[in-house]
């Protein structure tokens, strides 16, 4: 199971990295006559017998109800590796829409794939930041003890009891609502790192504080190692904890990013992050008429499930409840 989950994660990362080659259309290009077009189906067989994979051209039959039919008069074969795209069709036959289109007729598949870059990027980098900050502060607190320890622990405890989501929204609001995707990306990454570090720091601190009393630590000190030197010897003991924490922080931050973008305080309107995309699918009418707009939710589910599987069953439970908003005691 863990192997399979890891493979799924690798595949998703690969797709996100190779987005420009994977996506069949640009993510922001609206196709005017394809609003709410359903996902295209791949066929292998028609009345003439078996063929290489092909699709049918979509035809809009009712502009008000937005109903589409497949045009069965001609097969449109899939082309591999043309114009730098993995899969494409003859442009004359209209856009290739694997996952359907949104209200403006933009390719949802392309938006999902590009959105993975933003959503996963924020979550992974935010987790890295929190881990670095938490490991450093936790190690300093645990290995030095005394006032510095009390200071760091108090700050961590303080951050842990804050109503974090509310504060993140206030902090996000200090910037204009519409900001560039790059700015939103870094703003969220830094915010997440700053709200998630205390959990990491507490764990590292308690591990390092225990290690400090061991004989090898005394030996290092006796050999004349300074504070930093001792710390580099103690920190490896926390590797296992940090690894699990990293895998569990990503789903938490992924959920945080999608929630923020969903309520309009993350990536701005046209930017395709997973939470932002879900905003399009949220309206009940859209949900009824175009359920494929909920695919980003499925993507979130798959990634979170895979990460929890990789982290291990027991850790997964702890991680899903361990939220950056609450104290751990």
């Amino acid at each position: 199971m863990r192997r399979a989950a890891a493979a799924v994660l690798c595949a998703i990362l690969l797709v996100a990295t190779a987005a420009p080659w994977i996506a069949s259309n640009p993510p922001d290009l609206p196709f005017g006559d394809r609003a709410f077009a359903p996902p295209m189906r791949v066929h292998l067989h028609d009345t003439d017998g078996w063929h290489a994979p092909f699709v049918y051209r979509q035809r809009l039959v009712n502009r008000i109800d937005r109903t589409y039919v497949e045009d069965h008069t001609a097969r449109v074969p899939l082309r591999w590796w043309t114009n730098g795209r993995l899969v494409s069709i003859d442009p004359g036959a209209g856009p290739l829409l694997w996952c359907g289109a949104d209200a403006l007729g933009r390719d949802l598949c392309a938006r999902l794939v590009y959105g993975a870059r933003l959503s996963l990027g924020v979550a992974v980098l935010g987790a890295c930041g929190a881990l670095l900050l938490g490991a450093l502060l936790g190690a300093v607190a645990g290995s030095s003890g005394g006032r510095l320890d009390t200071l760091i622990t108090t700050v961590a405890d303080f951050v842990l009891v804050l109503p974090i989501v509310y504060l993140v929204i206030v902090l996000r609001a200090t910037r204009p609502l519409v900001i560039s995707p790059a700015e939103a990306f870094w703003l969220m990454t830094i915010l997440f790192a700053f709200v998630a570090w205390p959990d990491v720091a507490r764990g590292v601190r308690s591990i390092v504080a225990t290690e400090r009393t061991r004989d090898y630590a005394a030996a290092v000190r006796a050999l004349g190692a300074g504070r930093w030197r001792v710390m580099t010897h103690l920190l490896p003991a926390a590797y296992g904890f940090l690894r699990i924490e990293f895998v569990l922080l990503i789903p938490a931050l992924l959920a945080a990013e999608s929630t923020l973008s969903f309520v309009g305080f993350g990536f701005g309107g046209a930017t395709p992050s997973w939470g932002g995309l879900l905003k399009d699918g949220e309206a009940l009418t859209a949900m009824y008429a175009a359920p494929w707009l909920l695919l980003p939710a499925a993507a979130l589910f798959v990634v979170v499930l895979a990460l929890q599987t990789v982290a291990g069953a027991r850790a997964g439970v702890a991680g899903s409840v361990v939220d950056t908003t609450a104290p751990r005691r």
Binding site: A255, M287, L294, V304
Partner: peptide
């Protein structure tokens, strides 16, 4: 367990 509240609420609404 793998459904964040955002996913859960959208699935239930659907």
């Amino acid at each position: 367990l793998a459904c964040p509240p955002l996913v859960a609420v959208l699935v239930l609404l659907y």
